[in-house]
Simulated assay, not measured.
Amino acid sequence: MKIRISSPIAYDSIVDGPGLRMVVWTQGCIHNCKECHNPQTHDLCGGYEVDTEEVTNKIKTLKLQRGITLSGGEPFLQPEALEEIAKEAKNNNLDVWSYTGFTFEQLLDTKNPDRFKNLNLLKQIDILVDGKFELSKKDFTLKFRGSSNQRIIDVQKSLKYKKIMLVEEYMQQELCEAR
């Protein structure tokens, strides 16, 4: 299977999720967020294609990384290829983060023709940072996101409980229960 990426894979990111991370920057985005951090990734025909097997083979060689991050561009424009990559990461005991300009609800909306492909990818993702970047809500104090409308979602808990479980909320809840 092929995946269109915008640039070579990074192996040492410390800003795209916790710990040392491998990052796959997908090519192609339809959101056109004003002052996007990665505007070079917007062109749907830009970047270049690689075999997903090339990426999964690189995952197998990782030693110091805590996880991988799927960024872009818009990862959910290529859910099948990224599902394969994310599965390999999980098989290698790596956590998987993904960024998307879509909301969690949009990805799973019954009117979305790709919702089953999106669900299959979401089943492999631990943390999803969702929502478009909004310049009017830009905030440099936020961790792992650019604007305050974006949410950091625990995907597996959200799928299990069939409601959005924000990382901050459930961590606070677990701390209270431990007391």
Rank of each mutant, 00 (worst) to 15 (best):
M22F: 09
W25N: 04
E169F: 07
K34A: 08
H42V: 09
H42D: 05
I85L: 09
A178R: 12
S13F: 07
E168Q: 15
Q156T: 08
L62N: 13
K137Q: 14
M22E: 10
L94S: 04
K143E: 11
N92E: 14
Q40L: 05
K132F: 03
R4D: 10
V50H: 09
L122T: 03
I127S: 03
L122N: 03
I9R: 04
D139E: 09
P8C: 02
K160E: 15
K160Y: 11
H31V: 04
S6M: 11
F102R: 01
Q78H: 13
R115A: 09
P113W: 02
A81L: 07
L122D: 02
R66E: 10
L142F: 03
G47S: 02
I59L: 14
P75M: 00
K162W: 05
Q124A: 07
V167L: 15
N112I: 04
G101V: 02
E177H: 07
L62Q: 12
E80F: 06
D139P: 08
W97S: 01
S6R: 06
H31N: 14
N93R: 11
D16W: 00
T69V: 07
S6A: 15
P18Y: 02
D130L: 01
Y161C: 09
T56F: 10
G28W: 01
L128H: 07
I164P: 06
R21T: 06
E84L: 12
I9T: 15
N120L: 11
A86D: 04
T110M: 07
E83L: 05
Q78D: 13
E84N: 11
L64M: 13
G72I: 00
C33L: 08
Q150W: 01
E54D: 15
E168P: 08
R115L: 08
W97T: 00
E177A: 10
T52V: 15
K138H: 12
Q156V: 08
E105V: 05
E49Y: 15
D126Q: 03
P8L: 02
S13G: 10
F102S: 06
E49W: 12
L166S: 11
H37V: 02
Q65P: 06
I30H: 13
L64E: 13
L20W: 05
S136A: 13
K143A: 07
G28T: 05
M22Y: 08
S136P: 05
T69A: 07
K123W: 06
D109E: 05
F144T: 00
L20R: 07
F102W: 14
P8A: 03
K111T: 14
N32E: 07
F144I: 00
Q65L: 06
K143P: 04
N93D: 15
N38Q: 04
I152S: 03
P75W: 00
E35K: 12
E88R: 07
S98F: 07
N92C: 13
L107N: 02
T52Y: 11
T52C: 15
N92R: 13
G146H: 06
K60E: 14
K87W: 06
